[in-house]
């Protein structure tokens, strides 16, 4: 009888930790009432941080690239049927200013209508020349490199230049262009 009692006790010990009721398949969302205040504070803080980030970015831009000298270069792409972009090289007044290598995700974002702010620089007032070289894979899966040049005048206002790669169905080739916005 005593032995039986001992072993019942052991069984109890074992099952008490076995925890069948602890099985959690449901994934039922927990009530977050106790955390609602915390969530509100976190959200408020996050929003405030977004605003702080914005103001800091603007101030930084104002300091680093004042409007009187600012030149921003954007890049946009068409669907990319005739051209798969690998990299872009920019020359400002004959000097290489940037060489950008694209990831698949970035190219994909460009295909979907995104525009990349490729480069921002400071230039003095007057005439300038921008040359962009596009390197990638062209029609027939051949290596493809093309350049485009634009002359522009910088005055007191910031200058924005858009480089674009557009598929030309008539030429069955990509067309590269540059224009000031």
């Amino acid at each position: 009888m005593k032995i039986r009692a001992v072993f019942y006790f052991l069984i109890f010990l074992a099952y008490s930790e076995c925890g069948m009721a602890q099985t959690d398949i449901s994934g039922e969302p927990q009530s977050q009432n106790s955390q609602s205040e915390l969530a509100k504070e976190i959200e408020s803080l996050r929003q405030a941080m977004v605003n702080l980030n914005r103001d800091l970015f603007i101030l930084e831009e104002d300091l680093l690239f004042p409007s009187s000298t600012q030149v921003a270069i954007y890049l946009s792409m068409d669907v990319g049927e005739y051209f798969a972009l690998d990299s872009v090289e920019l020359k400002l007044n004959g000097e290489v200013s940037t060489h950008y290598l694209y990831t698949e995700r970035q190219v994909d974002a460009l295909y979907r209508g995104g525009v990349q702010r490729l480069h921002v620089d400071n230039l003095g007032q007057g005439q300038h020349e921008l040359t962009a070289f596009f390197i990638g894979t062209g029609p027939e899966q051949r290596e493809y490199k093309r350049g485009v040049t634009i002359n522009f005048e910088k005055d007191d206002e910031p200058v924005a230049i858009e480089l674009s790669v557009v598929d030309s169905t008539s030429k069955q080739q990509p067309v590269f262009s540059a224009k000031t916005l």
Binding site: Y74, S76, R105, Q106, D108, A109, L110, R112, G113, G114, V115, Q116, R117, A160, E162, L181
Partner: peptide, 12 residues
């Protein structure tokens, strides 16, 4: 251009 720049960041 600013709007499309947002698109570029969003799709990444």
């Amino acid at each position: 251009a600013d709007y499309q720049h947002v698109l570029y960041a969003y799709f990444q």
